[in-house]
């Protein structure tokens, strides 16, 4: 029995067509990744590749381990005492989960923007400049700050009050400030954990535009619970869902990973289809 899918999400065509897979350069290769808190698995057996200079979205119902997953890419989960993981994540061919890898160096290359804006209690200027200074990128600091703020589409709004506290900005501006802070230190990859979940539509739009403009320089991985957002910004989309194991165990699992267009218009898995057509959760 075949079902014809009426996509509930209108896919905008601002995205350029993705080159064929063999011409894509994988930046992350995830293999058999399990992430475990204490005795409870959050995600199990995830394998996928993330490609350079694309925006990759991770979608799925809440509780499917999206956030846990994205925090594996820059070892942020190391900070949680009971956390363990097995499997590998290769970044440019190098396993970053290995114990001999310095998590600080990993994070230096792979920046992150968090769900809730978390500016430092410093001035707008220092919020951006502090990381550069600490990491030794001291030359042309002013130009660097201006560039980062411009890229984050915040410069025009704050150029006259760079000395004001970062906390004096609105929520949307704060989040863009956090993005500026992340890109000012020139990472290779920017991870975004539901960056727009606490923002108004205008701020959300600004952030999406930003990803679009910057993806020629950076690789973005974005977790979102908002399918429209994934459809708008992502080149590739991974759909995670909650699976039931034995004894009532529930864990997140990668169901399907493909070009965004394919995920939203012709998914190959029934569960993906249910989710994107709104029949799930």
């Amino acid at each position: 029995m075949s079902i014809t899918i009426e996509p509930t999400v209108r896919v905008e065509t601002r995205r350029q067509p993705i080159p064929p897979r063999e011409r894509l350069e994988p930046i992350f290769e995830v293999e058999g990744l399990d992430a475990i808190y204490g005795a409870k698995a959050a995600i199990k057996d995830v394998s996928m590749e993330v490609y350079k200079n694309l925006v990759t979205a991770i979608i799925g119902p809440s509780g499917c381990g999206k956030s846990t997953y994205i925090r594996c890419f820059n070892r942020m989960n190391d900070l949680i005492p009971t956390f363990r993981q097995t499997g590998t994540i290769r970044y440019h061919g190098q396993d970053i989960c290995a114990s001999n890898i310095d998590p600080v160096a990993v994070r230096r290359n792979i920046g992150m923007v968090f769900q809730r804006p978390n500016p430092f209690p410093k001035s707008i200027y220092d919020n951006v400049a502090w990381g550069c200074r600490v990491l030794g990128m001291k030359e042309d600091l002013d130009a660097r700050v201006e560039r980062a703020l411009t890229q984050a589409a915040l410069w025009d709004e704050v150029k006259d009050r760079l000395k004001a506290s970062g906390l004096s900005l609105s929520g949307g501006q704060q989040q863009r400030l956090c993005i500026a802070r992340a890109i000012a230190v020139e990472p290779d990859v920017v991870l975004m954990d539901e960056p727009a979940s606490a923002l108004d539509p205008i701020a959300t739009q600004a952030i999406e535009q930003l990803m679009h403009q910057l993806k020629s320089q950076y690789t973005f991985v974005i977790v979102t619970h908002n399918m429209q957002q994934a459809a708008r910004v992502a080149d590739m989309t991974a759909f995670f869902s909650i699976s039931q194991g034995g004894e009532g165990e529930r864990y997140g699992e990668l169901i399907e990973y493909d070009a965004t267009e394919k995920i939203f218009t012709a998914p190959s898995d029934k569960r993906t289809e249910d989710y994107v057509t709104g029949r799930f959760g």
Partner: peptide, 9 residues
């Protein structure tokens, strides 16, 4: 963006 090596902890 330049990638910085991080071999070895």
């Amino acid at each position: 963006p330049t990638r910085r090596p991080f071999t070895g902890r």
